[in-house]
Amino acid sequence: MSSSVTAVRDRSDLKQVMAKANEKLLVLEFMGSVSYRSTCEYMKPILDGIAAKKDDYFYTIDVNNDQFKEIAKEARLQALPTFLIVKGTKTVRFLVAPDEAELSSSIEDALEGKIN
């Protein structure tokens, strides 16, 4: 099974990704390929499993990529992985190192309109 989660390559790609939030729910995972690698790798199959069942957009942003270090600072990331659930132009949930149940229920709640 291939991954339903796509890596954001650069700032231009991120702009295109953010524009998709007007169409469907957008889930962004801020992860580290160097720092916090084991925690982020633990979440990968969990996020892949959730994404495979949904018709929404799932992306990862590697904060160890120089292009995204400033974005990580602007977002005030304190731990990895951090997930943003975005609807339209609004972040409806900001999850810091969630477990599988918290991530899954937050996505479900956003899809069902329980969080705005």
Rank of each mutant, 00 (worst) to 15 (best):
K44N: 03
L14V: 02
V17R: 06
Q78Y: 15
P45F: 03
D48C: 04
D99A: 07
A72Y: 01
Q78I: 13
Q67L: 14
T89K: 11
D99P: 05
P98E: 09
V92E: 00
R76M: 13
E112K: 13
Q16Y: 09
P81S: 04
S38V: 07
E108C: 11
N22Q: 15
V5T: 07
D56P: 07
E102G: 04
F94M: 05
N22M: 13
F30T: 02
S4K: 15
K20D: 08
I115N: 01
D48T: 01
N22C: 12
A21M: 07
L14W: 12
L47Q: 01
I50V: 10
K44H: 03
V63R: 06
Q78C: 13
R9H: 14
K90M: 03
D48F: 01
V63L: 03
L25T: 08
K53T: 09
F83D: 00
S105I: 07
S38M: 11
L84E: 11
F30A: 05
M18F: 10
V92R: 02
L25E: 00
A51R: 05
D62R: 03
N116Y: 13
D66H: 14
V86K: 02
V27G: 02
S2V: 14
T39R: 14
N64Y: 09
S4Q: 14
P81T: 00
